[in-house]
Design a protein around this nucleic acid. Sequence first.
DNA 1: TTCCTTGCAAACGTTTTGCATCGGT
DNA 2: ACCGATGCAAAACGTTTGCAAGGAA
Lengths: 146, 146
Amino acid sequence: MSYIKKNENIEKLKEAGLKVTHSRCKILELFQNSPDEHYTADKLKDILTDNGETIGLATIYRVLTQLEMADLIQKNNFQENHSAYELKKSHHDHLICTKCGSIIEFVNEDLEKLQEHISKKYNFSLESHVMTLFGNCNKKDCKNLK
Amino acid sequence: MSYIKKNENIEKLKEAGLKVTHSRCKILELFQNSPDEHYTADKLKDILTDNGETIGLATIYRVLTQLEMADLIQKNNFQENHSAYELKKSHHDHLICTKCGSIIEFVNEDLEKLQEHISKKYNFSLESHVMTLFGNCNKKDCKNLK
DNA sequence: TTCCTTGCAAACGTTTTGCATCGGT
DNA sequence: ACCGATGCAAAACGTTTGCAAGGAA
């Protein structure tokens, strides 16, 4: 990662009122380096361990919560039993392959408009939404189950 | 509940290859009697206990799984930490009030078409989808938090 | 009578928390 | 030096499972 990115992260952490600690930097770096990757707490633990880091799982959970609060990462509950975090980007939804687990992000303007329309119909003040499409990705390497 | 409904349920259980037991009947009845209610396993346990039933939580989980397999009820993962089940009806999506937790069901044809369109764009074979809108219901009795 | 179903308790996987220690600022 | 951040272990939480006893067919 570049020095610019590192400094940016330091700024972001400070802005959020968080101390610039080793754990937080390492975790934030992982997200920065793979902007489209979706990490579970456990996956992060494995990667960090592989990288020679000795950051505890409890710390990872605490940092993930703080980074989410700071709007730096986004929490997704695709599966019922665990959460997947990704770097916060502009709004998007997900296509998820039920065979290989791969995730495709997409944005659709019509969809955004349609939500507003539906909300209005029910006199609802829309705050956020989740739209996830499940199916088969039909890719050559689909069988490579994760 | 009417006798007709009871008999219908017996038929449905038999069709699914499930024995017509007390637990299964009681649970299925609860869903039938409140077609729009969304029950967690725990909520069902409380209601059954209030009704003088002594059905164990493990049994409730087992029955819920079986009824879902039999396509009699539908499992929703609105919250990250627990599942909510409802009677299986024709396809619909949900509006959820973040203040009072109330759930409104809706169907929108344009939305269904749009999903197909998006899936095609990514060469995806669509199997199912989840569309949940979060916001405020703006109802008079909204503050009655559940 | 057969075997599925149930209740209970124990196990499970993910996430949270208490507490003493460590480390940014 | 201060007070927040961390590691560890234990707890918490929803859910699943093993097993012996019970119940529908």
